[in-house]
């Protein structure tokens, strides 16, 4: 603060509180709605304080799911989401760190060619090439597998760029020292580069976990088998479940369950998250 202005300080706090209310209110309402029965949500205005059906709603969701939308238990969907999110996260980190290592620490023909090929993937998001990508995985016979949920999404230009940027800042003396000690390239990678990259990997892990968990279009296209539904995508079938009216108390319960894991990760590892976000975008 440059100078003391009580009125401005008051306005500052007021603005921040309004911002917090605006951001939290929708989720508050979702949380409240998920603790009521269908009757309480049948007439307007709906209650703004918790009901007593919470336990019942959530245990029904987790164990049995929603009959109108195929009846897949949410426990199952969340498990699928977790496998997909972790698969994508570890996959992306592994392939990116290896590729960045090759591009920075070796000279070989087509080195920059490979680098540009990876870079170009930034410009080809799934959303814009939906049909042909779907065609490709159909031809490969990959529909309805965990593989198809994970592998096509593990190429990552941003992660590769981030690791490349980081490797370039590591002093050359380390490589020289390693070579004097007769360490081979993989030895150097495991014993020196990996430990040095730990913070970067952790920060990236958070961003990529959220990215993986929140995937929607891709799982929607490639899984028709209900046992492979992920939770973020599964909610769509509840909202648009045809003839039956949407059962809002259960849909909101699903929304809450689906957002808890990534939100917890952000809150618990706030510092790393901010670092990962700001660095991976630059």
């Amino acid at each position: 603060m440059v100078e003391n202005r009580p009125l401005l300080t008051f306005l500052t706090h007021f603005a921040l509180i309004m911002g917090v209310v605006f951001l939290c209110f929708p989720v508050w309402m979702a949380l409240v709605a998920s603790t009521h029965g269908p009757d309480a949500l049948a007439r307007s205005p709906i209650p703004m304080w918790f009901g007593d059906q919470g336990w019942q709603n959530y245990s029904q969701l987790l164990a049995a799911g929603l009959p109108e939308a195929g009846g897949v238990p949410l426990g199952r969907m969340m498990w699928n989401s977790l496998i997909m999110a972790l698969g994508i996260t570890f996959g992306k980190i592994a392939v990116s760190i290896l590729a960045a290592y090759a591009v920075v620490y070796f000279r070989f023909p087509f080195r920059m060619g490979f680098f540009w090929m990876i870079f170009i993937t930034l410009m080809l998001p799934v959303e814009v090439r939906i049909l042909p990508t779907f065609d490709v995985v159909t031809k490969l016979g990959l529909l309805n597998t965990y593989t198809v949920l994970i592998i096509p999404l593990i190429a990552s230009a941003t992660a590769t760029l981030l690791f490349r940027q980081f490797f370039l800042t590591i002093p050359d003396e380390l490589v020289e020292a390693a070579r004097i000690d007769r360490a081979g390239p993989m030895r150097f990678f495991w014993d020196i580069l990996m430990p040095l990259s730990r913070t970067n990997i952790a920060a990236l892990f958070i961003i990529l976990f959220i990215y993986g968990w929140n995937q929607y279009l891709w799982p929607f296209l490639v899984t028709s088998d209900e046992s492979l539904y992920t939770v973020v995508m599964g909610i769509q079938r509840m909202v648009n479940s045809g003839e039956a009216l949407p059962v809002w108390h259960l849909i909101m319960g699903t929304a809450i369950l689906a957002m808890v894991p990534p939100v917890l990760v952000v809150i618990a590892m706030q510092k790393l998250f901010v670092k990962g976000l700001v660095e991976s975008e630059k």
């Binding site: 951001l23 989720v27 929607y216 973020v232 909610i235 929304a255 957002m259 939100v263 952000v266 809150i267």
Partner: peptide
Amino acid sequence: WPYAVAPAL
């Protein structure tokens, strides 16, 4: 924290 909420949700 809303950063972590999926657009669909």
